[in-house]
Amino acid sequence: MADTQTAPRINPDARVRYQLAPAAVEQAKRRLKTDDIATLGGKLGYSRQTFWRVRTGQRAVPLSEALAVAKLIGWPLDRAFEQVSRG
């Protein structure tokens, strides 16, 4: 018998995805003093395309990167990022 067991029909490779919360984007705009979303992405260290993917949950964000973003905007990690809905 294997050391670990999985239940039938459960994909062990399925990952929970997170996105930068819309309220966190607004907080980042205020904190970093910009109204332009492309400029905001640059100030957070992202290209325009990558920032869009982070905002929509289409890019996995490493924990160290997420912590850095949360620190820049002055919010805790669990408030800055939210789970992507499966809808």
Rank of each mutant, 00 (worst) to 15 (best):
76 P>L: 06
79 R>T: 04
55 R>D: 09
85 S>Y: 06
19 Q>I: 00
21 A>Y: 04
32 L>E: 09
6 T>Q: 10
28 A>Q: 04
62 P>V: 06
75 W>C: 05
8 P>K: 02
20 L>F: 02
10 I>L: 04
81 F>H: 10
42 G>H: 13
45 G>Q: 15
74 G>N: 14
84 V>S: 05
39 T>K: 00
18 Y>D: 08
42 G>M: 11
49 Q>F: 13
79 R>Y: 07
45 G>P: 11
72 L>A: 12
45 G>V: 07
60 A>E: 09
45 G>L: 06
58 Q>Y: 13
18 Y>M: 07
9 R>T: 00
34 T>A: 04
87 G>L: 09
86 R>T: 09
52 W>T: 06
7 A>Y: 01
72 L>C: 12
23 A>F: 03
37 I>H: 07
64 S>G: 09
19 Q>V: 00
32 L>T: 03
56 T>D: 12
6 T>H: 10
38 A>L: 02
76 P>H: 09
32 L>D: 09
77 L>K: 13
7 A>E: 02
1 M>W: 13
3 D>A: 15
29 K>Y: 07
68 A>Y: 10
85 S>E: 13
1 M>F: 14
56 T>S: 13
42 G>D: 07
54 V>I: 08
36 D>C: 03
87 G>S: 14
11 N>A: 02
54 V>E: 13
45 G>T: 06
22 P>W: 04
68 A>Q: 12
84 V>F: 03
34 T>K: 00
41 G>F: 00
37 I>R: 06
31 R>W: 02
43 K>W: 13
35 D>H: 01
76 P>C: 07
39 T>I: 01
17 R>G: 01
76 P>R: 04
84 V>T: 04
30 R>S: 10
63 L>E: 15
22 P>T: 03
77 L>W: 12
14 A>G: 09
4 T>D: 12
35 D>E: 02
8 P>D: 08
26 E>A: 05
58 Q>N: 13
77 L>C: 14
82 E>C: 04
